[in-house]
């Protein structure tokens, strides 16, 4: 189980962004997280993924805190363009995390023809598939998806989520889906939390 226990956070001197927040995601469960803009959804997502350390409170992954090495809680952002090195080819980008097999590539609509290209040479939707696929390495047990389909067209959005949900179900992956889009959350999440 991925748990946030009594997490507080603030940026510098500004007021509290998160005030004693707790939530839990079980393996294989899809939890939606929504709320007004600026309420700290992304911050909570990054804290759960170990990008930020909470001011107080703890994050527990299957009974253990965050440790060095491969992080079992992977974070996916809205803009994949920033989460891949612009100087690396797509093939090198993916293999930084793992080497997916043919079936995985097909499931996520990633073509091996992109492997020699640079991130700016494929479209935003294609790059988001690459980023999603990269994060699904064997060591990943939980996924925090922060508005990953917001800038995509509805078709690409549906394709990515179908593939992701099937993979999560098969591998018992727990997911926290952060989004403004309530219809989307109602479609994919087992329960929806309002922050």
């Amino acid at each position: 189980m991925l748990e946030a226990r009594d997490v507080c956070f603030s940026y510098g001197v500004a007021g509290r962004v998160l005030d004693h927040v707790s939530l839990a995601v079980r393996p294989g469960e899809v939890v939606g997280l929504t709320g007004r803009s600026g309420v700290g959804k992304s911050t909570l997502g990054r804290i759960l993924s170990g990008h930020y350390r909470p001011l107080s409170g703890r994050v527990i992954i299957d009974g253990e805190p965050h440790a060095r090495g491969f992080n079992p809680v992977q974070y996916l952002s809205q803009s994949p363009a920033f989460s891949v090195d612009p100087r690396w080819t797509v093939g090198r980008v993916i293999s930084e995390a793992w080497r997916p097999d043919e079936a995985m590539l097909r499931a996520f609509g990633v073509s091996e023809a992109w492997y020699d290209r640079y991130p700016h040479e494929i479209s935003g939707g294609e790059l988001q598939r690459v980023a999603v696929l990269r994060a699904l390495a064997p060591g990943t047990r939980y996924l925090v998806a922060d508005e990953i389909s917001a800038p995509l067209d509805p078709l690409t959005q549906a394709q990515i989520w179908m593939a992701l949900l099937a993979h999560a179900q098969k591998n018992g992956l727990g997911m926290l889906v952060i989004s403004h889009d309530r219809p989307l959350l109602r479609r994919i999440a087992g329960r929806i939390l309002d922050l």
């Binding site: 060095r68 491969f70 992977q74 891949v84």
Partner: peptide
């Protein structure tokens, strides 16, 4: 940069 943070979390 996000991709450095990613790399860190890929171990």
């Amino acid at each position: 940069a996000d991709y450095i943070i990613s790399a860190r979390h890929f171990g």
